[in-house]
Design a protein around this nucleic acid. Structure first.
Lengths: 139, 139
DNA sequence: ATTAATGCAAACACTTTGCAATGGA
DNA sequence: TCCATTGCAAAGTGTTTGCATTAAT
């Protein structure tokens, strides 16, 4: 218990619930996703509180915000450098823990001090592929 | 002339101007960026027309939409697979033409048919780095 | 002549902000 | 007690859409 006391912010019940929901979560939820799940426990909680808390956690380095889904920010409690794979149909995002060392010469990255990289793999997940087959065979 | 007649859409003056502006453009402009530049030539043009045209061109495969900038979509007339480098300060985006072959085994991408990838390098561009130095030395 | 594209305004989705009330520290 | 956080509503950004008019084919 008190496992979050080192974050340096007030630990409200809402924040604890958000932290608990995110811990070990690999679904890369949006703010809305987090909000909907927590509405059961906190029927009066505001979506703005979720947004504010997620941004606070991001600034405190507890989570990262992904821009892999152009529609909305997705959040990831895994703050270690890693890559992602997104289904272009259903927008499911999964972690790709394999790391790649991608060097760029000064020529290849002119006048830039490179600090890191993020790889977005894209493709089609198995359930969306199955749906495709169904659609084709019943069309 | 008539160099765009194979696109398969009506070629209005607005669309031609957008195509001309994008051709060979490596600045990765947003819709708003395109709009502001073209306002000189077409003072009555609507921002909605720019959005609609950019989406039409994307569907026709003439440009791609980038999600590298979480604030807004950025557009790129270079439709060949390539990577990008973004300045985390000023959000400048530059092309990285070097290609990397990044294989994933079935284990590393479970239940996914991978179709491609996009690498986002991030760092600080030279002008932002210079500003940083100035800020430090005058603080 | 037909039909798609334009400009405008309204609507939409996601996110941030102002502020009075609340409740952790 | 004190100040950060909450919930709510309003506002802010980026983007899409409905529709009457216009113009490319």
């Amino acid at each position: 218990m008190m496992k979050y006391k080192d974050i340096g912010v007030k630990l409200t019940p809402q924040r604890l619930a958000i932290l608990d929901y995110l811990e070990g979560n690999t679904s890369h939820p949006s703010a809305e996703d987090v909000y909907r799940v927590l509405l059961d426990k906190f029927p009066t909680m505001s979506l703005a509180t979720v947004y504010n808390t997620l941004d606070t956690l991001r600034l405190k380095g507890r989570i990262i915000a992904l821009s892999i889904d152009p529609e909305k920010k997705r959040f990831d409690p895994n703050t270690k450098p890693h890559n992602h794979l997104i289904c272009i149909k259903c927008k499911k995002v999964v972690d790709v823990d394999k790391t790649f060392s991608l060097g760029l010469t000064d020529d290849e990255a002119p006048d830039f001090e490179i600090m890191g990289h993020h790889i977005e793999f894209y493709g089609i997940c198995s359930s969306c592929k199955t749906e495709e087959h169904i659609r084709k065979s019943t069309a």
